[in-house]
Write a protein that binds this DNA or RNA. Sequence first.
DNA 1: TAGATTGTTAATCGATTAACAATC
DNA 2: TAGATTGTTAATCGATTAACAATC
Lengths: 214, 214
Amino acid sequence: MATRSISKSTLQRLPIYLMHLKSLLPGGQSHISATTLALALGMGEVQVRKDLASVSEAGKPKVGYVITDLIEELENFLGYNDVDDAVVVGAGKLGRALLDYNGFANYGLNIVAAFDIDAGKSGVTDTGKSIFDMQKLEELCARLCIRIGILTVPADCAQAVCDRMVKSGILAILNFAPAHLIVPENVLVQNENIATSLAILSNRLKETIIKSSI
Amino acid sequence: MATRSISKSTLQRLPIYLMHLKSLLPGGQSHISATTLALALGMGEVQVRKDLASVSEAGKPKVGYVITDLIEELENFLGYNDVDDAVVVGAGKLGRALLDYNGFANYGLNIVAAFDIDAGKSGVTDTGKSIFDMQKLEELCARLCIRIGILTVPADCAQAVCDRMVKSGILAILNFAPAHLIVPENVLVQNENIATSLAILSNRLKETIIKSSI
DNA sequence: TAGATTGTTAATCGATTAACAATC
DNA sequence: TAGATTGTTAATCGATTAACAATC
């Protein structure tokens, strides 16, 4: 199977295209050109065309792409159609917000439950999702073959909790804790660190202000 | 003033160094070499050295860097010491989680209040932060000179709300809505889209599984 | 046919890595 | 002094952009 390897940068942009295309659906227009798409998203048109070429063969000169087809191809490529089960570990405010967020279904992610060290948090949330005691983590992950875990515990116990997740068979971790995780080679970590985003934003803001005050 | 422009990639890594250095403080060790730091974070040692050189002059051959000094320099550079006020717009679960998260203070961000279109959500949270009706947005932002806004509304009203934030004088937006925002040239947007992270994670997971099944 | 738009090949740009001289 | 470690200059790598041929 030729899983043509795709660059990380392109992969990051694909969901942006998908998002925009979906927002176009109610408008009723059937086709879109890479040029138009690039303009709307403030990207280079060659970049858009190259990115789209990596998931679709359906671009037609003069008319562009069929929007619904492109959406379908993007969703398939991104795996939004075959659902993966996931768990949230750490049922603090952020953890519970993610647990109850119903938008993940659109991205092929089904959060089945959350876990917390504080047994007092066990129970069922507004939306009917269960929060279990951490003790149940290993058994439940193994039984349901959970491969994706969302880590939302404080930094100081992030590594210890991460180790337990790995032991439970989790292969991919979305890490919201402001901590660097050490994992075995076969386990993936994607850091979702708000501090990092903030750093970039405030640095750029400072530069903007300096520039505009000259 | 020589605001030596720093690459975006480096800027993204600085908070990671800072985070790790802080976690080292309780250990009592006074110095650290770029080599050690690189090893701990799974990065190249030249990269670490180059990144650190962009914020510090204090590296000494043979001994490395004084940890506390390096922390100080990183915090100054990242602006964690001069606090910026910010508001959250959209008091849903995520918005309220961010509003009540007390970790932002470490990053030089002080969230003063949240706003929501649903006046029924107005009030005070557990941690004493106020949620106001959206109507108050413009007046309060102007009065407090708010320049940073955190956007946590649903995708379908993200652009409209963003426009109001811009009109209120906000210059930097941390966007959690899964939508592409169009803003004037002088306004910065940093997208914090979980779908994107998820796309990368699940794609890499798939590749890992394919590879390991060969 | 003419022209808009596609997909691709070549050139440029930026970031990472390798090599090395400087120094405590 | 010797060697660990720094900071920098040059080489490599990857991603973006520009140029262009193909085509509906």
